[in-house]
């Protein structure tokens, strides 16, 4: 099989992609980005929006399961929005990611059953709040890990559970500070307005 066929197969495979978007802090940009997915009937599996390392610039992490070809097109549509500075998309190999989960359990069962304490420790959970009636534990990790703790706690009367969206750091990213300075120039250099077609050998896919 030739290389290009290999590439085509890889492109046609659905897998998890984490899309990282740097945007201006503008009302309405969340909607503009969200409708790019909903218009194409693509489900967003998780979405996190928070201020980035740079003041006034927000960072989105969007998790979807799609083929690379589809994700590339989505990324271009997102980057086309006026208030979007930059879009990256990465497979799970390219990123370090975590999700945070909170678990509310009746305090009496915890106290009674020493076993629970041990299970929690094994799963890397820690207590955030301990009250007479309930205790809230917290853990971070991948989906499988946070899921496992639900199973563990279910028999002990898990009252409530919540999980955050995925947050991800791109392994090869050099951050956005230097890029932003380029963007701010009237005539940004080639690196910033780079054309993705020449950058395929790079680990970080950019457009």
């Amino acid at each position: 099989m030739s290389n290009s066929q290999d590439l085509e197969l890889a492109n046609a495979k659905q897998q998890e992609f984490t899309i990282t978007v740097y945007t201006e802090n503008q009302i309405g940009i969340l909607n503009r980005i969200a409708i790019i997915f909903s218009r194409r009937k693509i489900n967003i599996e998780s979405l996190n929006v928070s201020p980035s390392e740079i003041e006034h610039i927000h960072r989105f992490n969007i998790l979807i399961t799609e083929t690379e070809e589809v994700v590339r097109k989505l990324a271009r549509q997102i980057e086309k929005q006026i208030d979007v500075l930059k879009v990256y998309f990465n497979t799970n190999e390219d990123i370090i990611w975590q999700e945070l989960a909170l678990y509310k359990v009746p305090t009496d069962t915890i106290v009674e059953k020493v076993l629970v304490e041990r299970l929690l420790r094994e799963n890397g959970a820690r207590a955030v709040v301990i009250r007479k009636d309930y205790t809230v534990f917290e853990t971070t990790g991948h989906r499988t890990e946070t899921d496992k703790l639900i199973e563990v706690l279910q028999p002990y009367g898990l009252i409530e559970f919540v999980r955050s969206a995925r947050v991800a750091i791109i392994k090869d990213s050099e951050g956005f500070n230097s890029k932003l300075r380029e963007f701010e120039r009237l005539d940004p250099g080639q690196d910033v307005i780079e054309n993705e077609f020449l950058d395929q050998e790079k680990n970080v896919f950019t457009m």
């Binding site: 945007t23 932003l180 080639q190 780079e194 054309n195 020449l198």
Partner: peptide, 17 residues
């Protein structure tokens, strides 16, 4: 207005293409 930092209406033309 002639510049918005998050908007690049004039792409950098690459000669190799």
């Amino acid at each position: 207005c002639n510049h918005i930092r998050s908007y690049r209406p004039r792409p950098f033309v690459r000669n190799e293409y």
